[in-house]
Amino acid sequence: MAKNRLLGKVKGSYLFYSGLAVVLFFIVLAVFAPVIATYDPTAIDLNNIFAAPSAQHFFGTDELGRDVFSRIVYGSRISLFVGFVAVGISLIIGVFLGLIAGYFGGWTDILIMRIVDIMLCFPAFFLILAVIAFLNPSVFNVMAVIGLTGWMGVTRLVRAEVMSVKTRDYITAAQVQGLSGRIIMFKHILPNVMTPIFVTATLGIAGAILTESSLSFLGLGVQPPTPSWGNILTAGKDNIMFAWWLSMFPGLAIFITVLGYNLLGEGLRDIMDPKN
């Protein structure tokens, strides 16, 4: 009965479906990039710079004569990769600390939550900028830094869920059976707090993709010649007066992807929210 109700909600959720479609579309694009791209994304053709969109170059060419369509297709790999890995990192840290804080309470809880408060005091983007300025700009550093500065929300969320779940009778039963804290946390509590984590993660991916694009736009993210939507936009900024395609297509790609993940996240939330 419950299962059918959930399925019924999934069927009725346009948010969920449209989001899923967009996300799947970009995942296919990233996975099959070598097949879909019409050119080598780093192939330079100095005799054909700033060509407008045409049958040869669907999205035109950039300041080095590289095919913008192929660069955007390959750029989707960077965006997805950064999104998933960065969110993965923040989930691992966030869930772990949230579980501990929520389950043990007391001083452990106070300590962890104060660390969270301190971390939240930093304006996240400027913290990332500062850290990247010390490290070398690269995809890996960008992922790590976005992940390491984005776990606080997850911790708060998980802690709150854990605190409500741990008062349930089945947890008391497990404790009475003499199961260790570790087993109770990971085997009995964690599966019951997964739902909101999924929603946060989906929304988090959208945020991470935006942050990566912003960093690359500023020249602190993915380094040339690797294409990323952010660094294609940088070239667009200088030439926006006459080469609109350099700004518009990567901009659209970022917009649609972020929208897709947000829709998917909202859709998931609606479906899993018992009040609906």
Partner: peptide
């Protein structure tokens, strides 16, 4: 940073030197 022609020169050289088996990483 701040000189887009120089950054582009780096990218052209990277691609061109690749043809003679030289691997170049760019840092701006």
């Amino acid at each position: 940073q701040g000189n887009s022609v120089r950054t582009s020169i780096c990218e052209v050289l990277q691609k061109s030197w690749e043809k003679i088996g030289v691997k170049v990483d760019i840092r701006v």
